[in-house]
Design a protein around this nucleic acid. Structure first.
Length: 297
DNA sequence: AAATCGCCCAACCGCGCAGCG
DNA sequence: CCGCTGCGCGGTTGGGCGATT
């Protein structure tokens, strides 16, 4: 397939009715990039390096702003990008930890993840946050758009085998694991923390009957974070947990403290029943299925 | 089969910062 | 010092698409 040159792309822009004019009377193309545009941009970078973005338009190479060109290069054309590849559990762990430490410094966080862009990280976090927020909203039986597992017959619920939950080691038990698989250790530890965040659903507290207790294995002591930060300062706490916004005036920790009190939901370490977990979507526990067999014992 | 919902992701927008004249 | 310009970053939006109803 023959790619068009820049003059043809400009000509096309002059023909279509959606062109937008820049400050100098030149039109600026917006929207999806074509293969031809990518090709031209690649050539520019090959020749000049990833800089002089604004000259791409001023030289008449592309009807795009320098901003747009840079973004395209950084997010899609740069070599060694993991495009179309979902975040691995390990990458998720890194993002969660670094977000707790740096806040929403996506560009900085992305530098710790090979092949990921700030946009990737931002989108990942945004999706995760939305999911969390959705779960934090008190579900109304009549208006909930998501399936309300509680209201469905048990036979329709995609059951998670009990052993899946039991595979998760307590944070202070992992350290004693003689197998010493650091990678698994790392993932399990932080996943437990994330599960803690996601599980802080007030509606679940209410819907959970008293015999549906939540195992402490999913409530690691956040002060005993065992992740290797590679020289970075360990995050004091995930921001999600400290952000009072989802909980009104109380932070997650406030709620957690309340529920740790005698009679609270977290005081026992008994094995949870499936019923508790049926409140959550299956993929919430995807990490647990990735646990190695060595942790089965 | 059609409608609706939810997720993912590419791309744009606005703002702040740095460099330069 | 000030204004201009380019660049980088974080926030937001809108479309595509698969899953569900």
């Amino acid at each position: 397939m023959k790619l068009r040159d820049s003059s043809e792309i400009f000509a096309e822009e002059e023909d279509d009715g959606e062109r937008e004019f820049g400050g100098r009377g030149t039109y600026i193309k917006k929207g999806p990039w074509s293969a031809e545009e990518d090709e031209i941009l690649m050539k520019h970078v090959k020749k000049n390096g990833p800089r002089d973005w604004s000259s791409i338009r001023s030289k008449g190479l592309l009807p795009r702003t320098g901003k747009s060109c840079r973004l395209r290069w950084v997010n899609k054309l740069r070599p060694n990008l993991k495009t179309g590849c979902k975040f691995s559990a390990e990458e998720e762990t890194v993002v969660i930890e670094l977000q707790a430490q740096f806040g929403n410094k996506w560009a900085k966080i992305a530098t710790y993840l090979e092949g990921r862009t700030d946009n990737d990280v931002k989108n990942f976090w945004s999706s995760r946050r939305k999911r969390l927020e959705r779960m934090l909203q008190k579900p109304s039986p009549s208006s909930s758009s998501k399936p309300n597992y509680k209201n469905k017959a048990t036979s329709q619920i995609p059951h998670r085998p009990p052993q899946v939950v039991e595979q998760v080691p307590a944070s202070n038990q992992v350290e004693q694991n003689p197998s010493g698989n650091n990678k698994c250790h790392h993932v399990v530890e932080v996943k437990a923390e994330e599960a803690t965040q996601l599980d802080m659903v007030p509606s679940s507290f209410e819907s959970c009957s008293s015999d549906h207790t939540f195992s402490q294995v999913l409530l690691p002591d956040v002060s005993h974070n065992q992740v290797d930060y590679g020289g970075l300062l360990p995050p004091p706490m995930c921001h999600d947990l400290l952000d009072p916004e989802p909980f009104g005036d109380a932070t997650f920790l406030d709620l957690f403290e309340q529920h740790k009190k005698p009679g609270g939901i977290f005081q026992t370490s008994s094995i949870p029943t499936n019923a508790f977990f049926e409140d959550f979507p299956c993929d919430l526990f995807d990490y647990f299925e990735d646990l190695p067999n060595s942790l089965d014992k």
